[in-house]
Design a protein around this nucleic acid. Structure first.
Lengths: 152, 152
DNA sequence: TCGGATTTTTAGAATCGTTCTAATTTAGAA
DNA sequence: TTCTAAATTAGAACGATTCTAAAAATCCGA
């Protein structure tokens, strides 16, 4: 789970800024999330992490996820009554959760829409974060065709 | 927790339509949620319900909330790592969660915005439901002044 | 490079919110 | 009524997450 230099730099800087230490485990977990950009749960991240770092513990995975979120490298995604999922937060986007397959899709949010949403609140309300998620059914996936929005 | 006739009718019809029985407990829980339109958790609904129906159980509260949701009388609201909250679902709206006070505010969603959001998904994606929630800090509330958006 | 303060990791226990189980009660239909 | 199905209940069980306390790793300054 070696990070490519670009992400390694971003990783070190982000933790540095928060006064957190860039440990092997944190880097590893970040690597796992970057590797396959589906939206794994903590348990899934744990399972994948153990493949190449068998001694890592579940508690550490939770700890690492927490520090990655604090550092802004990863964000958490919640769906009704489902365990929290995690994704590397490149850019602002929404999520679509298919209730049939459980699969999660990224949904691109145009800047104009984001601005519109932020203006829904009266002045004085400071937004730290917002989450937009859809629940429904995705079209049956044609196995080898490109899917929209971004598959996961 | 007696429902006023208008809500009683709505209640009976909604359950009827789902083939569910309009029991004392269901009506009571619905009344509790209508009474004070904050966004109580299941535990809070349980505590309030017990005041005038001391024998009701927590399991029943969960069951009732579930059937009320199925009937479309109530909707659930989720915030990151917080227990599920419940609100009577009059109309489509978003939520703002103040991380300082824990208070939840309703945010009105103009029809145009709803339409915009629904169009973010490519054709083929069937939306059953969507949730938009903000997290941040609400302005310090002046105790007796009207608040925006709808207080809770 | 070493030593010590501080942070992080770890395993396992504990906690929280929620769902399940099995027995009892209730509602609604015949 | 009487029967059947649905709903309620208490408590156990569960899944996800957090906590605890001890061991290990990291960082900093000498």
């Amino acid at each position: 789970m070696k990070l490519i230099p670009e992400f390694k730099l971003e990783f070190d800087e982000a933790l540095e800024k928060m006064g957190l230490r860039p440990t092997r485990q944190r880097e590893h977990v970040y690597g796992v999330i970057l590797e396959k950009r589906d939206h794994p749960t903590a348990e899934e991240v744990y399972a994948r992490s153990k493949e190449s770092m068998p001694t890592i513990s579940l508690a550490t995975v939770y700890n690492c996820l927490e520090t990655l979120i604090q550092s802004g490298l990863v964000r958490s995604v919640n769906f009704d009554r489902e365990p929290t999922r995690y994704c590397p937060n490149l850019q602002e986007h929404a999520h679509f959760h298919c209730s049939k397959t459980g699969r999660v899709y990224d949904v691109h949010l145009p800047g104009a829409v984001i601005k519109t949403l932020e203006h829904l609140l009266p002045s004085g309300f400071k937004i730290r974060n917002f989450e937009l998620s859809f629940d429904g059914e995705a079209p049956a996936a044609k196995p080898s065709a490109p899917k929209h929005p971004t598959d996961s």
